[in-house]
């Protein structure tokens, strides 16, 4: 309960701005989409797309936890 409250409160993580939970989810989604789009444009010929998915999900978790 207490923990949940903390995550929704605005805080300063490694991101340059103060964020609350909604901001961090939003940033994660934006980055996820961007990685996939750029991957399809430049890297998919070499590496399959699911690597991008894993990569961006890992990044999303990092942002949600420490951002």
């Amino acid at each position: 309960m207490n923990d949940k409250n903390n995550s929704t409160k605005p805080r300063q993580g490694f991101l340059p701005i103060t964020t609350n939970l909604f901001d961090r989810v939003f940033i994660s989604v934006v980055i996820l989409v961007a990685i996939h789009l750029l991957w399809m444009r430049f890297l998919e010929a070499l590496l399959p797309l699911w690597i991008a998915t894993i990569l961006s999900l890992v990044l999303a978790v990092i942002i949600l936890k420490w951002g």
Partner: peptide, 10 residues
């Protein structure tokens, strides 16, 4: 799937 987007970025 994401085929539409694949087409779109090119």
């Amino acid at each position: 799937g994401v085929n539409n987007y694949r087409r779109l970025v090119f």
